[in-house]
C-alpha cells in the first residue's frame, strides 16, 4: 500500500502540481462560469461606471474628463440628490422592519398545523410572483382616494380617509404598506427556518411550564436570528434600489415626495441623457448600500445567535 501511495505522490510531483494546487485548479475551473460572469457583467460595468462618473458624457460624442466635478455638483448644488436620498431612506426605514415583521408573522401562522395549509401557503406566496408592474397598477386602484377599495373600507368605519399616494405626506407610508403585499419570498425563507427549530426545545419550555409567548421569546426568535439577519440584509439592499413602484405609480410625485434615488438616477441617464452624472449617482448609491450593509453586519454580533457558538 505504502508503495502505491508513494508512487502516486511521485507521479504528482513529476507533473509539478501538489494536491493542493490541483484542487485549486479544479475549484477555479468549476466556479469559472460564476467568476467570469461576475467580472464581465458586474465588476466590469462597475469599473466602467466609475470611469464614466468622472466625465461629462451625453451618450453621444466623446466623454469629456472632468474629474470629480459631478460628485462636487451632487454634494453641493443638487437639491434633488438630498431629497431622493431622504425619500429612499425614509421608505427603507418604514418598509424593511414592517416587511420583516409581517413576513415573520405570516410564517409563524403558516407553520401551524391547520387544515388546508398548502392552500394558505400558496395564497400568501402568490402575490410575490406577480410582476411589480402589474401589482403597481392594481394598487393604483386600491389607493384611489375617491373610488379605491382602501378608502371604501375605511369610510364606513368612521376612520379618517387618506389621499394615499396622492398626497406628499402619505405617499411613502402608502408605498410601504403596499410592499407588505410582496413579502412572499421572505416569508418562505422564514418558514423553512421555522421548520428547522428543534422540537425538543419547545418541549423543554413546556416542561418548565412556559406558554406560547415564552416559546416564541426564548426559543423561536433566538434560533431564527440568523434567518432574520439574512432577510434583513437582502430586503434592505433591495429596498434601497426601489424603482418600479414610483416609476409606474407616482412618477416621483406629488411634488417630488416619492422621488426615489433610482428613479432620479434613471431620469438623469435616460431623460436628460446625462450619463456621467447618472454614473456618479450610481457609485454613490453603491457606497451607501455598502456602508449600510457593513453597519448591519457589524451590529449583528449583538443580536444574531448561531448554534454551537460559545459566549
Amino acid at each position: 500500500m505504502e508503495n502505491v501511495a508513494s508512487k502516486g505522490r511521485v507521479a504528482q510531483e513529476q507533473r509539478g502540481l501538489s494536491r493542493k494546487q490541483r484542487n485549486l485548479l479544479w475549484g477555479l475551473l468549476f466556479t469559472s462560469p460564476a467568476i467570469i460572469g461576475f467580472f464581465l457583467w458586474q465588476f466590469g460595468p462597475i469599473m466602467a461606471a466609475i470611469g464614466i462618473s468622472l466625465t461629462e458624457w451625453k451618450i453621444v460624442g466623446t466623454p469629456e474628463w472632468i474629474g470629480l466635478a459631478n460628485y462636487q455638483k451632487i454634494f453641493t448644488t443638487d437639491p434633488l440628490f438630498l431629497k431622493s436620498v431622504s425619500v429612499t431612506l425614509i421608505y427603507t426605514a418604514l418598509s424593511v422592519p414592517a416587511s420583516i415583521a409581517f413576513a415573520f408573522f405570516l410564517a409563524v401562522l403558516l407553520d401551524q398545523k391547520v387544515r388546508l395549509l398548502p392552500v394558505f401557503r400558496t395564497i400568501f406566496y402568490l402575490p410575490s410572483i406577480v410582476p411589480f408592474i402589474a401589482s403597481s397598477y392594481l394598487w393604483l386602484w386600491l389607493f384611489n382616494p375617491d373610488f379605491g377599495a382602501l378608502n371604501a373600507i375605511i369610510r364606513p368605519l368612521g376612520l379618517p380617509e387618506s389621499k394615499w399616494i396622492f398626497a406628499s405626506d402619505s405617499v411613502l407610508p402608502s408605498l410601504a404598506l403596499m410592499s407588505l403585499w410582496g413579502v412572499g419570498g421572505t416569508m418562505l425563507i422564514f418558514l423553512a427556518g421555522l421548520q428547522g427549530v428543534p422540537k425538543q426545545l419547545y418541549e423543554a419550555v413546556e416542561v418548565d411550564g412556559g406558554n406560547v409567548w415564552h416559546k416564541m421569546r426564548h426559543v423561536t426568535i433566538p434560533i431564527m436570528t440568523p434567518v432574520i439577519f439574512f432577510n434583513f440584509v437582502l430586503t434592505t439592499i433591495n429596498t434601497l434600489q426601489t424603482f418600479t413602484q414610483p416609476f409606474v405609480m407616482t412618477q416621483g410625485g406629488p411634488n417630488n415626495a416619492s422621488l426615489f434615488y433610482v428613479l432620479y438616477l434613471y431620469r438623469k441617464a435616460f431623460r436628460q441623457s446625462d450619463m456621467g452624472y447618472a454614473s456618479a449617482l450610481s457609485i454613490i448609491l453603491l457606497l451607501i448600500i455598502g456602508v449600510l450593509t457593513y453597519i448591519i453586519f457589524r451590529t449583528s454580533s449583538l443580536w444574531v445567535f448561531y448554534e454551537g457558538e460559545r459566549d
Partner: peptide, 10 residues
C-alpha cells in the same frame, strides 16, 4: 412637480 402639487390641491 410644482404644477402637479397645485392640481393635486397640495
Amino acid at each position: 412637480p410644482a404644477i402637479e402639487a397645485i392640481f393635486a390641491d397640495e
